[in-house]
């Protein structure tokens, strides 16, 4: 299985959760312990080891929060 990694620019996140919804491997979730500069609980990688680098999260993110790398 390909291995991937997400980089999250959390201060751009508006917590719309589209990335979370469309990630098939439950890599992402909201970080309820953080409030970003826009006032939202931003996205975070809750299961980073599950990421396969498919980049669907970045595709569905409206706000350029996510960069994806793949092996």
């Amino acid at each position: 299985m390909a291995k991937g990694r997400v980089h999250l620019e959390i201060d751009r996140c508006k917590a719309c959760q589209l990335c979370i919804t469309f990630c098939s491997r439950n890599v992402l979730g909201l970080d309820e312990h953080t409030i970003n500069s826009l006032g939202y609980h931003p996205v975070t990688a809750v299961n980073p080891e599950e990421c396969n680098g498919c980049a669907v999260c970045a595709m569905m993110c409206p706000d350029l929060v996510i960069e994806v790398e793949r092996e």
């Binding site: 917590a15 980049a55 970045a58 993110c61 409206p62």
Partner: peptide, 24 residues
């Protein structure tokens, strides 16, 4: 890198509401 900001965007923070698909 398989997904990143394209050069043809400035990277300025969008003013759009959460979940607005203008950004996509």
């Amino acid at each position: 890198t398989v997904a990143a900001r394209p050069e043809s965007l400035t990277g300025a923070q969008y003013h759009y509401c959460p979940g607005c698909t203008h950004g996509i």
